[in-house]
Lab assay of single mutants.
Amino acid sequence: CHSECLGNCSQPDDPTKCVACRNFYLDGRCVETCPPPYYHFQDWRCVNFSFCQDLHHKCKNSRRQGCHQYVIHNNKCIPECPSGYTMNSSNLLCTPCLGPCPKVCHLLEGEKTIDSVTSAQELRGCTVINGSLIINIRGGNNLAAELEANLGLIEEISGYLKIRRSYALVSLSFFRKLRLIRGETLEIGNYSFYALDNQNLRQLWDWSKHNLTITQGKLFFHYNPKLCLSEIHKMEEVSGTKGRQERNDIALKTNGDQASCENELLKFSYIRTSFDKILLRWEPYWPPDFRDLLGFMLFYKEAPYQNVTEFDGQDACGSNSWTVVDIDPPLRSNDPKSQNHPGWLMRGLKPWTQYAIFVKTLVTFSDERRTYGAKSDIIYVQTDATNPSVPLDPISVSNSSSQIILKWKPPSDPNGNITHYLVFWERQAEDSELFELDYCLKGLKLPSRTWSPPFESEDSQKHNQSEYEDSAGECCSCPKTDSQILKELEESSFRKTFEDYLHNVVFVPRKT
């Protein structure tokens, strides 16, 4: 048989008469490798580009789960590009990614509803959504962080984005990388972005840091009482949809009607710091009717980097990364020049730590249904340095008659930039024990000054392991946590139920 035959053949030295091919099969003959313009397919066939392209389009058009959109890589027609490569849609070739590779997620039936953290986790790592997304989240724990972890990498949506009755959302900033909504599939009414009845939605994105392009379709905003109209108009300008909307697409009466839409800028007039305090004062603000001013709200939190936005980490279910302080308005003076500047002394802060701070007014709604208010920009203030805590785990070892090696770990709280350490030492008198000992005694162990690591005695271990207080009263049991108490109650309830079950099964009433 021919060298490319495997198993047997019907005619000697003829690659077209093989029972099976050793390498690849091409047009009725066995070959060692697939010549151009053919590609290896499933490690035994040679196919042309049209064959591989037909497989790709067949799966793409069917949208069946589990099928493969075949691509070409290293002269092979394979189910998908290997790690580190992405497909070129024009020629199906796998090309190296520039940075992290995109991950295209194809949605069944063309859309997916995100109504819980669990459903959001199914899209973790996706960068391109081939379909439409509907966000409908009523509640949950730590929602802002969970949504950002699972949806934060999405850069492109081919269909539309719909935010509907998501009472738990305060902001859409968890879509931190969303840059493009194509609108290839539109919501009824030709809408590519749809926001309806979101009672706590206050911000779409921080438009000073976020760009969003909507290729096709219109915007729809109705019944978002805490979303200011200025935020919607800003989205029109940034996304390129200005002029597409009709009169009733953006409701003037049901958007922002319960919001404090600040239209003035508060400026800080005085800032002073110490290692654990920050004193702030800002310019006074009074609405047209000074009785509408209820006070100020001061927001602050630790910020290692200057990239904080107002609604980071917030949701309507209680999660809030900001510390909020309510401040009463100052006494009002008739003389504008003698107006008191409101302020606040922030206490209990960490030394040498940068804080993000902003302040906003708290006002009631005027009778004319106009909203007044003022808010400052987010500023960054760093507390002063102070003395560091003591170095940890000092170790001293003498390696000769004239040297001592000293080692330690950095302090747990540096409280500033540590530039150097101060080492103090003092000579001590020799131990009298060394002169009084009889060095001729056998088995004498000389006193040693070398360091030995501390260890816990058996008594201390027994005390720590004991669940009861000892007789001397030195140790006591740790208080039980809520989960331990709940577990004990469940076990007790189970024992009672099981005992009742045994009584009912074992003891049967005697027939009379």
Rank of each mutant, 00 (worst) to 15 (best):
residue 331 L to K: 07
residue 375 K to L: 14
residue 397 V to Y: 06
residue 255 N to A: 06
residue 299 F to W: 14
residue 238 V to Y: 14
residue 286 W to V: 06
residue 275 F to R: 02
residue 252 L to D: 09
residue 134 I to W: 10
residue 146 E to Q: 11
residue 398 S to L: 04
residue 251 A to G: 11
residue 194 Y to K: 09
residue 318 G to K: 07
residue 372 Y to V: 03
residue 302 E to G: 03
residue 105 C to G: 00
residue 338 S to T: 14
residue 401 S to Q: 13
residue 356 A to V: 02
residue 369 R to E: 03
residue 379 I to N: 10
residue 388 P to L: 02
residue 157 I to G: 00
residue 214 I to C: 15
residue 336 P to H: 05
residue 351 P to S: 08
residue 346 M to I: 14
residue 370 R to T: 04
residue 297 M to T: 14
residue 251 A to M: 11
residue 397 V to I: 15
residue 134 I to G: 03
residue 143 L to I: 04
residue 243 G to E: 14
residue 297 M to H: 13
residue 324 V to Q: 13
residue 383 T to E: 00
residue 123 L to Y: 07
residue 211 N to A: 13
residue 332 R to T: 13
residue 133 L to Y: 01
residue 354 Q to S: 05
residue 352 W to H: 14
residue 124 R to L: 14
residue 316 A to L: 04
residue 351 P to D: 02
residue 104 V to L: 07
residue 377 D to F: 03
residue 358 F to I: 12
residue 331 L to S: 11
residue 286 W to I: 04
residue 274 S to V: 04
residue 307 N to H: 15
residue 391 P to D: 02
residue 367 D to Q: 15
residue 245 Q to F: 04
residue 315 D to R: 15
residue 249 D to Q: 06
residue 215 T to K: 06
residue 172 L to G: 02
residue 185 T to Q: 06
residue 190 N to E: 11
residue 171 S to W: 03
residue 252 L to N: 03
residue 226 K to L: 09
residue 158 S to C: 10
residue 220 F to K: 13
residue 346 M to Q: 05
residue 226 K to P: 01
residue 277 K to Q: 03
residue 224 N to L: 03
residue 325 V to G: 03
residue 402 S to H: 08
residue 272 R to V: 02
residue 267 K to R: 13
residue 337 K to D: 03
residue 226 K to M: 10
residue 235 M to W: 06
residue 346 M to D: 00
residue 127 T to W: 12
residue 358 F to Q: 10
residue 119 S to T: 09
residue 291 R to I: 10
residue 129 I to C: 14
residue 335 D to T: 13
residue 238 V to C: 12
residue 148 E to G: 07
residue 169 L to N: 01
residue 351 P to F: 13
residue 363 V to R: 07
residue 231 E to Y: 01
residue 367 D to N: 04
residue 286 W to S: 09
residue 362 L to M: 15
residue 260 S to G: 09
residue 283 E to S: 06
residue 386 T to S: 09
residue 145 A to L: 12
residue 398 S to K: 01
residue 369 R to P: 07
residue 314 Q to K: 15
residue 381 V to P: 02
residue 154 I to F: 01
residue 105 C to E: 00
residue 369 R to S: 07
residue 331 L to I: 06
residue 223 Y to R: 12
residue 339 Q to F: 15
residue 205 W to I: 08
residue 399 N to W: 15
residue 302 E to C: 03
residue 251 A to W: 11
residue 332 R to Y: 04
residue 311 F to H: 05
residue 384 D to C: 10
residue 198 N to M: 03
residue 224 N to A: 01
residue 154 I to M: 15
residue 213 T to G: 08
residue 404 I to Y: 02
residue 279 L to P: 00
residue 326 D to V: 03
residue 116 S to G: 04
residue 209 K to E: 08
residue 208 S to N: 11
residue 194 Y to H: 13
residue 227 L to F: 02
residue 374 A to T: 03
residue 142 N to P: 05
residue 136 N to V: 11
residue 174 F to L: 11
residue 186 L to Y: 07
residue 197 D to N: 15
residue 190 N to A: 09
residue 321 S to E: 13
residue 246 E to V: 07
residue 119 S to H: 01
residue 120 A to F: 05
residue 199 Q to C: 05
residue 411 P to W: 01
residue 166 S to G: 08
residue 306 Q to M: 02
residue 156 E to F: 11
residue 320 N to M: 12
residue 227 L to I: 07
residue 173 S to Y: 11
residue 347 R to F: 06
residue 383 T to I: 01
residue 382 Q to N: 06
residue 369 R to N: 14
residue 295 G to K: 14
residue 284 P to C: 00
residue 136 N to T: 15
residue 328 D to R: 08
residue 292 D to H: 10
residue 254 T to E: 08
residue 193 F to M: 15
residue 394 P to M: 03
residue 280 L to M: 07
residue 272 R to F: 07
residue 199 Q to N: 13
residue 275 F to L: 04
residue 244 R to Y: 14
residue 250 I to D: 05
residue 320 N to H: 07
residue 377 D to R: 08
residue 317 C to F: 14
residue 408 W to M: 02
residue 238 V to Q: 14
residue 146 E to Y: 15
residue 166 S to F: 11
residue 388 P to W: 01
residue 136 N to M: 02
residue 175 F to Q: 00
residue 113 T to C: 11
residue 257 D to R: 09
residue 254 T to I: 14
residue 234 K to F: 06
residue 164 R to H: 05
residue 186 L to W: 05
residue 143 L to W: 15
residue 342 P to E: 07
residue 133 L to C: 03
residue 322 W to F: 09
residue 191 Y to L: 04
residue 252 L to R: 07
residue 327 I to C: 14
residue 352 W to Y: 15
residue 362 L to I: 13
residue 237 E to A: 08
residue 221 F to K: 00
residue 291 R to P: 08
residue 166 S to R: 00
residue 393 D to N: 05
residue 259 A to W: 14
residue 327 I to F: 05
residue 339 Q to A: 14
residue 121 Q to F: 09
residue 266 L to K: 00
residue 154 I to T: 05
residue 245 Q to D: 04
residue 307 N to F: 09
residue 269 S to R: 15
residue 258 Q to T: 12
residue 206 D to E: 06
residue 213 T to A: 07
residue 110 G to E: 04
residue 334 N to Q: 12
residue 402 S to Y: 12
residue 295 G to S: 13
residue 330 P to L: 13
residue 179 R to Y: 10
residue 208 S to R: 07
residue 296 F to V: 07
residue 215 T to I: 13
residue 247 R to Q: 13
residue 136 N to Q: 01
residue 405 I to W: 10
residue 256 G to Y: 06
residue 108 L to I: 05
residue 132 S to L: 00
residue 360 K to N: 06
residue 311 F to K: 12
residue 260 S to F: 09
residue 195 A to P: 00
residue 280 L to Y: 00
residue 407 K to P: 00
residue 229 L to D: 07
residue 398 S to M: 03
residue 160 Y to D: 01
residue 129 I to L: 12
residue 218 K to S: 05
residue 226 K to A: 09
residue 352 W to K: 13
residue 249 D to N: 03
residue 359 V to E: 00
residue 289 D to V: 06
residue 352 W to E: 03
residue 236 E to P: 01
residue 263 N to M: 10
residue 349 L to T: 04
residue 271 I to Y: 10
residue 125 G to L: 14
residue 211 N to V: 07
residue 393 D to F: 15
residue 103 K to R: 11
residue 287 P to D: 02
residue 337 K to L: 06
